[in-house]
């Protein structure tokens, strides 16, 4: 039984779609179940995903030149690896950009810092570049750009020729 099949068995209703190519397995899940799935991946002895290899995001605004419209805008992508079992799993979390009922302006998902300490800087980078907030993160502030920077540079609606220099000529 592969890790993906184990996750499907346990969280069938939370999984939007799955994908596997030559042993690289992906599960696309709903944001509400992220923490539960992640905890299951880490704490189940047969899975034992003790290493969060990468955590990043994708902005699907204007995806494929605007020809493909998705009902969500962002996807947070997590790559897990088990050093003990030498197997991998990729989780994709769909994150909506629409304003939430409580009036918050930024999309938000649960933070993985409580399970993997390495999630700390990954999540700060995703916040810095995409403006996705992580609920439960201990220190969610910009990691690469300076604090004076306005906006999030890797969002597809950030103008590619916009400059925000600290000193020097403005454009």
């Amino acid at each position: 039984m592969t890790p993906l099949e184990k996750v499907q068995e346990k969280f069938g209703k939370d999984i939007v779609e799955t994908h596997a190519f030559r042993g690289d397995e992906t599960a696309v899940i709903r944001p509400a179940s992220l923490l539960a799935v992640a905890k299951f991946l880490k704490d189940t002895p047969e899975l034992d995903f003790n290493y969060l290899m990468d955590l990043t995001a994708v902005d699907y605004l204007f995806f494929a030149g605007g020809r493909i419209q998705k009902e969500f805008r962002f996807e947070v992508v997590c790559h897990f690896y088990s050093i003990k079992h030498n197997h991998r799993l990729r989780l994709k979390v769909q994150v909506d950009d629409r304003e939430a009922p409580d009036g918050r302006k930024h999309p938000e998902v649960d933070s993985l810092t409580s399970l993997w300490a390495s999630a700390d800087w990954y999540e700060r980078e995703v916040w810095d570049m995409y403006g996705i907030r992580f609920k439960g993160h201990p220190n969610l502030k910009r990691i690469l750009m300076y604090e004076e920077f306005v906006g999030h540079a890797l969002r597809k609606d950030y103008p590619f020729d916009k400059r925000q220099p600290l000193i020097g000529p403005q454009n």
Binding site: P165, L166, I167
Partner: peptide, 9 residues
């Protein structure tokens, strides 16, 4: 980069 610019100055 812009973050380094004030240091260079």
């Amino acid at each position: 980069n812009h973050k380094m610019a004030p240091v260079l100055k």
